[in-house]
Design a protein around this nucleic acid. Structure first.
Lengths: 105, 105
DNA sequence: TTGACATGTGACCATTTGGTCACGTACGGT
DNA sequence: ACCGTACGTGACCAAATGGTCACATGTCAA
């Protein structure tokens, strides 16, 4: 697996925020994403490039705009790497519990 | 979520290899893990500390040894963040296909 | 209690990374 | 044709990261 690019891409807080934005609504342009982040256009562009090269974001040009889409396949592969099929249900229960505890703080 | 530490921890190739080793067999000592990696003891120790602080590895002391265990809960949480429950089956099929294609190369 | 083994700490250095900027290219509307 | 808009490139710098080493602590066993 070409995992290096994927994990490096996920290691930055801004890039994860961009993924969150695209998870919420797909097909946004660079300018639109830029307005959601405290950073110049150049920074955002660099981050999107990293995400695209990692296969976490797919793009499509439309005139002078570039549309960005979330591509979750690599995330699924991460999961499959360290979660044993047989213990998956047990872990899921733990993860749900952890989420609930944190929300109720 | 305290995701920063988790993603930073996963961003390094050596640390992912250590997780693979622990996924394969739990409860190993530092010295044992050191022998599996091309690096001095100090480097491995630093990496294990990062993994432990991220909650990806749990430890237990036993005499002068320190035993390391894989803790996959944070991995599950990553998955849950960007994989929509309703599209999960479709993505899984894609991920399986990708794995098969890469294996047959 | 002495010695060997297993783990721990802080300083140090080379490389990578995140962010900005000056400048450049491409498309659309009027 | 022209101007405004949207995206792209390369250089540059400060900060974070990965790795090693000298040195230190704790534990077992003879």
């Amino acid at each position: 697996m070409d995992d290096e690019a994927v994990f490096k891409a996920l290691a930055d807080r801004t890039r994860r925020h961009l993924l969150d934005l695209l998870f919420e609504r797909d097909g946004r342009t660079l300018s639109e994403l830029e307005s959601e982040v405290e950073m110049t256009r150049f920074g955002v562009m660099k981050h999107l490039k990293v995400l695209e090269e990692a296969g976490l974001v797919a793009t499509r040009r439309s005139g002078r705009e570039k549309l960005h889409f979330l591509s979750p396949v690599p995330i699924q592969l991460i999961h499959d790497r360290w979660i044993d099929k047989y213990t998956e249900h047990r872990i899921s229960a733990l993860a749900d519990l952890k989420t609930k505890l944190e929300k109720s703080e």
